[in-house]
Design a binder for these strands. Structure first.
Lengths: 143, 143
DNA sequence: AGTGAAAGGGTAGGTAA
DNA sequence: TTACCTACCCTTTCACT
């Protein structure tokens, strides 16, 4: 993990369709060498996967919300139960004023209400507090 | 935006290195037709960009935190001021128990403290509450 | 770990059905 | 929209440095 690896990752984060020829030129290496470095970064799991960023609103998910979930015991399969809710994009165990923090995307406030109902049915959940996103100022990949 | 478009997006979210030949076969179209559909999805902004998912911990950002920011007036360039902090991955204007919610990634708690200091220096900020992530149960792309 | 070249496959663009 | 064709670029591999 030297400076060149970091540059390659940054370039790919910005646009993963770049060819190895372009990448190599950008970091001062040959196409083959750039390819080999990226291959190793994938192999080591530093680069998890190549994906596309989708405009959620265009797919009918216009509402984003964070849900603070209070619970008693967070052992076992609570994670699996939350993962089973398709609208849950992220779920984090947290230190602070709740047990778990969810990031949820739905088509509207009606669907959000339905998601909250399903969260409440997960074993151990004693309460939820919901934060609705009004506007997103920043949403980017860190370098 | 029909069912085929949705399938193509889902396939690309899963692995954007798939060739158009493979994509076409998966949705029952020719390579050319699949290519044309994806091109239009990009053009319309449904697909924002192609990128790589990076293991942040492997890049020395092992601590994730959410910061609830209280403030007086959130007009003007507060967004720009927050975007200027490189550790800020997301910033949302929210309805609920604060004005703005930040997602922050740092190398350690020491750096987190430093970020909080910089957030406090943004004009209009009157207070912050920090939620540290202990474990991430779910982190995925929604279909 | 990187270079350079060769071979094969995929992509992109055009045209016709 | 599909099918076909073509030119070209890129990926991938390998021997050599």
């Amino acid at each position: 993990m030297d400076e060149i690896d970091r540059m390659l990752i940054s370039l790919l984060q910005d646009d993963a369709t770049r060819s190895y020829a372009v990448l190599g030129k950008a970091v001062g290496l040959s196409s083959g060498a750039a390819h080999e470095r990226v291959r190793k970064l994938r192999e080591r799991g530093v680069i998890r996967r190549t994906t596309v960023e989708v405009d959620q609103a265009a797919l009918g998910r216009g509402v984003t919300a964070y849900v603070l979930v209070d619970g008693e015991s967070w052992m076992g399969d609570s994670g699996a139960a939350l993962a089973a809710i398709p609208e849950v994009e992220e779920a984090h165990v947290i230190a602070g004023p709740a047990s778990v923090l969810l990031k949820v995307r739905t088509g509207g406030t009606r669907d959000l209400q339905d998601v909250l109902r399903r969260v409440f049915q997960v074993e151990g959940v004693t309460g939820t507090r919901t934060i609705v996103v009004l506007d997103t100022l920043v949403d980017r990949a860190l370098k």
